[in-house]
Design a protein around this nucleic acid. Sequence first.
DNA 1: TGACAAATTTGGAACGTTCCAAATAAAAGG
DNA 2: CCTTTTATTTGGAACGTTCCAAATTTGTCA
Lengths: 336, 336
Amino acid sequence: MNHPRHTIVDIAKAANVSKSTVSLVLQGSPLVNKTTREHVSKIIAEHSYVYNRAAAGLRNTKSKIIGVVVNDLTNPFFAELAVGIDAEVQDAGFVQFLAHTGESTTRQGQVIASMRENGICGLIVCPARGSRLEDFQPLLNNKIPVVLAVRTIPDAGISHVISDNHAGVFNATKHLHDLGHKRIAFLGGYADTRVFAERFAGYRDALFGAMITLDPKLTTASMPSRAGGVIAMERALSLPNPPTAAVCLNDAVAFGACDALRAAGKEPGKDFAIVGFDDVIEAKSVVPALTTVTTDPQGIGRRAAQLLLQQIATGITSEQIIMPATLTIRQSCGAK
Amino acid sequence: MNHPRHTIVDIAKAANVSKSTVSLVLQGSPLVNKTTREHVSKIIAEHSYVYNRAAAGLRNTKSKIIGVVVNDLTNPFFAELAVGIDAEVQDAGFVQFLAHTGESTTRQGQVIASMRENGICGLIVCPARGSRLEDFQPLLNNKIPVVLAVRTIPDAGISHVISDNHAGVFNATKHLHDLGHKRIAFLGGYADTRVFAERFAGYRDALFGAMITLDPKLTTASMPSRAGGVIAMERALSLPNPPTAAVCLNDAVAFGACDALRAAGKEPGKDFAIVGFDDVIEAKSVVPALTTVTTDPQGIGRRAAQLLLQQIATGITSEQIIMPATLTIRQSCGAK
DNA sequence: TGACAAATTTGGAACGTTCCAAATAAAAGG
DNA sequence: CCTTTTATTTGGAACGTTCCAAATTTGTCA
């Protein structure tokens, strides 16, 4: 039962044809005669021959391997994204190297280098915080397409697929205003990140549209995590004239904000309106269910993969795609 | 700025040495003179040369690529598992193909075949439901190590790393009994799966140890999902002599069971004790926080990767590893 | 300084494919 | 039946590396 690994030459010998013919059969070339093809195919199956793609790639440089680098697979949002990419990549007959960086740019550099040595023909990255254009320049210099997903790098001109942060937060803020709130906070995140800038702009513009002057005290930066949410909310509640509602940078911050509210004896959704961003899976099962901005991570993944595959096929043409982000109203905003 | 892709020969030419010397430098061989090494290294850096691992692999067959196949990346449990594998694999200087099967054995077959063509030297699989030994036989015939994670295939003798389902549920059941419960249900899952069999055995044996005769009516099979949990609990509650506590196949079922309890006007943790299995991330943040069996998916992943790497290095020796599963007591069981 | 040993460097074959140009076989046309 | 055309098949070079055996350089010691 222990078959040794066969090569195209073994098959050729067994089928009594030349290796070229076997190669042709493997590629499904129309040049080879029907009977020959059938005969050779049979031998191939019998020998449980395995095609060696690496060897093939040596001649014609276009591999069918793409690299996928994700900053945090543990986060359901990014896991969904990876699944979306995977689906598209598999359907196209490609295979993917997937690596997790845990927000480490060092790790990111290492895995990208390794993937390059292993001959990827394209790369999809959710860049780790602090990534710079230089981190991807070597790829681009070699005309290896790169697509950034979810996060982008300012002014780099690299293709990307991100969600509509501005519109999402704009609508979330507007919704809170429509519910009658006048003092709406913006909680969590750090101002030097792209995501913060875009979401904050949505908040600012919605307030402007509602004729509310922006009170800088109502914007509290913090880590974009649950712990950060606690801190941000505590600070907001301690203001002389505290807010009655808050838009949070993301769902994790929103959960933390709820924790802090309860600790202060307020019930989220009743005494205070909370909106998140991302619509992670817990959002709908938590109590009160979180009103949040829904993005479609699988969709972003699919789109990023499509974009990359297209660039691989037809050469590089940078393209920026913005995916819709819609408000999903649940209990935490207090809407009926 | 547009560097073409250089080869070892280009470097040799530029450095005025033979390609063999460059190869030696790349491998960090002690044979090459210090000055030469430095000179060549400099040229390599200047030319931003990228090593071609595929070409190298052509001669010495041992690639540094492993395949990872996961049935459902969307499930945080498996995402964590993937991260654990990833960490170990990266540290060992390997790179991984990762694919998601979505429980489709067809998809699984395709990706494994594809990975094989791409020259993986080992494979870690969380097999899709319904996987058979034959699905992995070709790999094994070629002496490519395979490690199953989380799920196993009966009597296949393939290496695996799973968690201690029996002990986990045994302790969970015992805990409920210690809290005074006499009628304890076992909810969710289908009897023809391995996981069900093992967890159910833990339940059965704990009851036996507590001198409680097993009432078959208290075991309700259903889909191992939240929806399945709802159905299973509804059925349990409709019994003439309903249970007062339940061990659920996994956390998803437990969440569904809570939904059904509330629908029936009972509060989980107060009027009814619930225990889950897996300790998914939501478990601790949900209300009431879920008492559940904690496994360490990252740890399982790491261990599986270690096992695989060891088998790759030293040849195949099948090994079965069982990782501990401990009870994490929170609110849903009603313990003080 | 010459002989020998040790250290370093080097061509070329090999790995499993593809692709080209050329060879061969089969079919068609006169 | 011979020539042309068309259909099929086929060696060999090439891809970028490694590894071996052999060549070359350097160092040591009498």
